[in-house]
């Protein structure tokens, strides 16, 4: 990953696990989690988005059309360590529920923190996809997560 630009706005090349990468503008600005809402999305077994609710659209800054068919990693913020997502995939591919605190990247480069839960969607004994539900985290959990993730990068 290479970094350049000023302290508040920087251009970052984000490399994904599948070998692809993109250059994203990162702005050091937090967008507050909307009160009372759940951000809901579903993906297929490879992580490609098949459903996004309105709260997801509003918070991510992407349109519904832009989100459907994209890999969920489109939201990955460069401050998130890859190991956190490796743990997520290991857990859900084993058929278990995963909880974690995640810093998400918006289309405009700003970010928002969530408490995320991901579960496998099992139909007739087969995993057919995953449901991810995000809710409002506490400031103390965000601070703990920031400190932890800084050590994992």
């Amino acid at each position: 990953m290479s970094e350049q630009g000023s302290a508040d706005v920087r251009e970052v090349v984000i490399e994904y696990f599948d070998g692809t990468s993109r250059t994203a503008t990162i702005i050091d600005r937090e967008v507050p989690y909307p009160e009372g809402k759940l951000i809901v999305s579903r993906t297929d077994t490879k992580g490609f988005i098949t459903h996004a609710n309105q709260a997801f659209v509003d918070m991510s800054g992407y349109s519904q059309e832009e989100l459907i068919g994209k890999n969920h990693y489109i939201l990955r913020h460069p401050d998130m360590p890859a190991v956190a997502f490796a743990g997520l995939w290991e857990t859900i591919e084993a058929g278990n529920k995963w909880h974690g605190y995640v810093k998400n990247l918006r289309k405009d480069g700003a970010y928002y923190w969530v408490k995320a839960t991901v579960i496998p969607n099992i139909r007739n004994g087969q995993v057919v996809g995953y449901t991810s539900v995000r809710r409002k985290p506490s400031r103390s959990k965000i601070a703990e997560s920031e400190a932890l993730y800084a050590t994992l990068k």
Binding site: V40, R42, K97, H99, T117, I119, N121, T131, S132, V133
Partner: peptide, 13 residues
């Protein structure tokens, strides 16, 4: 129905 149940599942710790 399954979608709603999956969602509820994520809300139970």
């Amino acid at each position: 129905t399954e979608f709603m149940i999956d969602l509820i599942d994520t809300l139970i710790d």
